[in-house]
Simulated assay, not measured.
Amino acid sequence: MKYLLPTLFLAIIIGCSVQKKESVPNNLDPQLENNTIRIANDSLEYEIIILEPGFNAWLVTQRPRGYYGQTYLEQRNRIFVANYNIRANNPSQYGPDLYPMQIDYEYDVDYGYEVNYLLYNYFLYFQEKYRQRLR
């Protein structure tokens, strides 16, 4: 159970981010409240939800927003998402615990800086915590 869905991470990118909101759905364990990040714009259809114990604490130790340009983040995310999805599509080789579902990240969609920043940092966190290489 070492990797019990470490990715309570649900990168459900269904559209474009603009605004950061931290919230927890009512049906979640209260202990997860400080480990939940939701980025969404309610008028659009894009959001990213990260439910990962320790991610918030780790994130504050990383380079601040604005350090990387959006183009850089998008390029890195394309590589990370492609490699992540390859592993998600091969559960017999990589196991379904670390890669439970594909990430729907379309390369031609402008998700905005905040979504790309958090997704990029989640991938860095994921690689460090679970000793994976998605490069």
Rank of each mutant, 00 (worst) to 15 (best):
Y3W: 08
L5G: 12
L5W: 09
T7M: 07
L8G: 15
I12D: 06
I13C: 02
C16E: 15
Q19K: 15
Q19H: 13
K20S: 14
N26A: 13
D29M: 03
Q31G: 08
L32I: 04
N34T: 13
N34D: 15
N35H: 13
R38Y: 13
I39G: 00
I39F: 00
I39Q: 03
S43I: 09
L44Y: 08
L44D: 08
L44G: 01
Y46R: 10
Y46L: 13
I48F: 09
I49Y: 05
I49M: 07
I49E: 07
E52C: 13
F55E: 02
W58E: 02
V60S: 15
Q62M: 10
Q62A: 05
Q62K: 12
R65I: 11
Y67I: 05
Y67S: 07
Q70F: 01
T71Y: 12
L73Y: 02
Q75L: 13
N77W: 03
R78P: 02
F80G: 01
F80P: 00
V81C: 05
A82I: 03
N83Y: 03
N90E: 14
S92C: 08
Q93I: 13
G95I: 02
L98I: 04
M101A: 15
I103M: 04
I103D: 01
Y113F: 06
L118G: 06
L118N: 12
L124Y: 06
L124C: 12
Y125N: 00
E128Y: 07
K129H: 06
K129P: 01
R133K: 14
